[in-house]
Computed example of a mutant assay.
Amino acid sequence: MNPIIHETEHRFDARDGYSLAGLIIAPPTPKAAVLISSGTGFPKELYRRIARQGAAMGYACLLYDYRGIGGSAPSQMKGFAADIVDWGRLDFSAALDQAQALAPHGPVFTLGHSVGGHLPGFADNALLPAAHAFVCTSTGYWGAHEPSYRPSALFFWLVYGPACLALKGHIPSGGLWSGTALPRGVFEQWRDWAFKPRYFGDFLHELGPHAFDRITAPITDWTFADDTLASQRAAEDLMALYTAADKRLLRLAPAEVGAESIGHFGAFKQAAAGFWPRPFSWFDEVAAGLNPGGPVSDAVSTPAP
């Protein structure tokens, strides 16, 4: 018998009052909460399937769109000011508080895709989560991508993106960019970091307060062998920025989760349903360690509908 899962649209304010679009997917009585943070340009709806899996395993999940993305986009993108640090410092921090409130008596965890795994380090409440699950999280340094992907990355940074900014004032959806429209500031900051071998690692102090060296909650990053953007090297470089955490990097073949291919964002599509329980099963293990002798899990291991 499938558990009852509720889905509720939820708007809330970022740290500076900017209105963000969210979606709560949860069982009636959650045992813990999970904040699910998107990759760059991916709307929250991409993560609905894995959130339903989490809800089936007892977790209240909050999905949300960063400012400038999806349901949190302005009516006019040209001239809209936002960057990736804003996503972490203003949006992620507020969303984490919202997620914690969904299960106030249980722990809160994060599940971040790609840039969603960068944001905890910029949050003012970064020490709140009990663990962080990353999926395809890595630096975006172009030289750390797999060789086959590097020409495409350079074309995007040096030709396509600048042309879009000159013509539109932002990166529109469509063409060579398959995600949602991106604000100018997001593209320019991302591009700046992409040409530095340690990404933002060498100048974190210039970006303001951060917690990359203070987060001690365990981190697991699942990447996939056919992801040419989040290569093994790029994933290791990003994980190295979380200097105080107990870290684990797992690189899987798509066949290990029942898929023919996954790439950078296929882990959240139906073909990769075999992957969805893994982060939540790991959260169960972490929660059991927080509460020795307590119930480990009432998890549903099969993919949720």
Score class of each variant (00 low, 15 high):
292 P>C: 06
105 H>T: 14
204 L>R: 09
266 G>M: 02
239 M>C: 04
131 A>F: 05
69 I>C: 05
247 K>D: 04
197 P>H: 11
148 S>C: 06
105 H>W: 08
197 P>G: 13
247 K>W: 00
6 H>F: 09
27 P>Y: 06
1 M>I: 08
137 T>I: 00
44 K>S: 03
158 L>Q: 15
149 Y>A: 15
52 R>F: 07
64 Y>L: 04
62 L>Q: 09
145 H>M: 13
107 P>N: 12
52 R>Q: 13
242 Y>I: 07
122 F>M: 14
36 I>W: 04
65 D>I: 10
288 A>P: 10
105 H>Y: 05
14 A>T: 08
260 E>A: 14
2 N>S: 13
202 D>F: 05
141 Y>A: 15
257 V>G: 01
88 G>L: 08
42 F>N: 03
192 D>Y: 15
267 A>R: 01
201 G>S: 09
176 L>Q: 12
227 D>H: 04
122 F>I: 02
63 L>A: 10
210 H>D: 08
204 L>Y: 02
41 G>F: 07
105 H>S: 15
181 A>D: 11
41 G>P: 06
234 A>T: 08
42 F>K: 01
186 V>N: 04
193 W>S: 05
217 A>N: 07
276 W>E: 11
104 P>W: 14
249 L>M: 12
247 K>N: 11
72 S>K: 07
176 L>D: 12
74 P>M: 10
92 F>N: 02
304 A>M: 07
259 A>S: 12
83 D>N: 15
140 G>L: 11
302 T>Q: 14
80 F>A: 04
105 H>I: 01
72 S>L: 00
26 A>G: 09
208 G>V: 09
145 H>F: 14
137 T>W: 00
216 T>D: 07
130 A>W: 00
286 V>Y: 03
112 G>Y: 04
159 V>W: 08
20 L>M: 09
42 F>V: 14
122 F>V: 03
175 G>P: 03
304 A>Q: 06
4 I>R: 12
298 D>V: 01
266 G>W: 00
263 G>H: 00
271 A>V: 00
221 D>A: 15
68 G>E: 07
3 P>M: 00
257 V>P: 01
